[in-house]
Write a protein that binds this DNA or RNA. Structure first.
Lengths: 220, 220
DNA sequence: AAACTATTCAATAACTTTATTGAATAGTTT
DNA sequence: AAACTATTCAATAAAGTTATTGAATAGTTT
């Protein structure tokens, strides 16, 4: 094998893996699976895809060895093969948000149109934690909370927030987080809380970002 | 805009940028541009592409805003738009090497077939530097060395190594580096040096990786 | 073993990407 | 202003990707 042939094959393989990520639905699936494992049916529902279609995309990811499967009863559960998959998604996400003005505009416009408030990054939250007390709430569905969450966070799924709001303190600031920067649950939570007179802010990133940084997490 | 529409557009944009990376030639171009700026002609030559073809790929990268151009005399020089582009490439590269056994096999097989020796990572080199003295040589073409190199490295392009070998110490270990893990110049250098009785090892990563880590660099 | 069910497969049509030409363009130099 | 030159554009054919069906499969439960 000569030098050119070697390069063609290495870059060919890398392009193959990159292509398996280069599709809107598959990127959305990756972000979902970063929360934990899900069945094909659940993945299809979360991403608004027909099941056969979701399955087809999952096959592509499986062939590229980006996801693993294991059977649980009648269901086949998919999960990310390892943390490097999330790292690559994160790098692409950050490249996109920084480079493509359209994405940042989409995100801010969408938020501003419905929710007029600011967010805090993980870094900002860590600083804030040094000086004062805050209450962190996880507004994802309970199953995702159970698979892993920020240490000491309280689980209040967005669907239950209105009824369970009274569990929260009126004085200390509340930080709501969900799946990641494009997840809207946290925005909805902040909107509900603010309207009821609470001090609330959304965390920009999601649980997988927190976890990747090696910050304290809990399970179950 | 509803939630689904918002997601479709955000992931759509991210897939668009990912697609612009998802091609063997464009990945190779990205890695080349991580060394500095190059004209279309130079890029075509380095990647063994017809010029019209290289230009076409560069248009794709430009449209995705991953590269910038500036004119220098008769030539148009392309360069990476910023360090996030290299970060994304690095994440994909690491995902590929770790996930796809084929890539690791390709790299080790190719090296073993021609060059039978080990390499050291940047981390390993930093540790080694604490205890003993090493000589670092940059075997890329001089133009790339001038655009940026590891602090205190000596420039000896691979094409001149045989004649200039005598400039190097026989006793201290020599570390050779080039563009990145898939660049073969450093392997060739180690082979030449070892044959002549020097103690030599290749650095696994390339200059852009060193630079991204915030380690000391020099220009010119 | 039969019934059931979640998932995958297969075929196809619409769409997108890529390589290959050769011509056109936008600069620079003379 | 003319000549030159590096780069881009345009057209086209071949190859690859995706959504949409409906049928097939591989398990599990009864």
């Amino acid at each position: 094998m000569n030098k050119r042939e070697f390069k063609d094959r290495v870059y060919g393989e890398l392009a193959r893996i990159t292509k398996s990520l280069a599709n809107p639905h598959r990127l959305e699936i990756i972000e979902l699976l970063a929360q934990g494992d899900f069945s094909v049916e659940q993945i299809a529902e979360q991403t608004s895809l027909p099941i056969a279609n979701a399955s087809q995309h999952l096959q592509v990811l499986k062939q590229a060895q980006l996801v693993d499967i294991n059977r649980q009863g009648n269901f086949i559960h998919y999960r990310l093969a390892n943390s490097n998959v999330f790292k690559a998604w994160k790098a692409l996400r950050e490249l996109g948000v920084e480079r493509i003005a359209t994405i940042e505009k989409l995100v801010t416009d969408f938020r501003q149109s419905k929710f007029k408030f600011e967010s805090v990054t993980i870094e900002g939250l860590l600083q804030r934690l040094e000086s004062r007390k805050v209450t962190i709430i996880d507004v994802r569905p309970t199953t995702e909370f159970n698979k892993g969450h920020i240490a000491n966070a309280i689980s209040i799924p967005i669907s239950e927030l209105k009824e369970r709001m009274t569990e929260l303190p009126k004085r200390t600031e509340i930080i709501a987080y969900c799946r990641g920067p494009f997840c809207v649950y946290a925005d909805e939570a902040v909107a509900i809380l603010k309207k009821a007179g609470y001090k609330a802010t959304r965390l920009e990133e999601g649980f997988p970002d927190w976890s990747l940084m090696g910050l304290p997490i809990e399970m179950n």
